[in-house]
Amino acid sequence: MSFEKKLPSWKSIPIGGAILKPGNFAERPTGDWRVFRPIINQDKCLRCLICWAICPEPAIYIIDKPYRTSSGREWKFTLEIDYNYCKGCGLCVEECPVKAIDFVEEVK
């Protein structure tokens, strides 16, 4: 019983185990599962959205942030990985058609 430190009383939890806050799983990050970290090379990225579409979390976001590549190409948006949730599965790394996502070992 000692581990049940501050859990609420039966009186203050919804009956029948209902969960009233949609999507509150986001309060629990899963970034610490990661062994390898995918890093998007914004210069190489073609903004094809494949990584965004296949990410099972979702942990890749389309951000309305313009980006200018080193070769001068203008992008209206950027793809960013949310490391709070990215579990480091590597699907995006493998599926990126231009190999714009590096996969590096996490250093803790």
């Binding site: 049940e4 009383s9 039966w10 939890i13 009956i15 185990g17 209902a18 969960i19 009233l20 949609p22």
Partner: peptide, 22 residues
Amino acid sequence: PITMGAIADPNWYYEFKYQQVV
């Protein structure tokens, strides 16, 4: 949008059963 029929682990299940008792 609520979630019904979630898993209640040993930290929670007992309280839901006690609610039924009450």
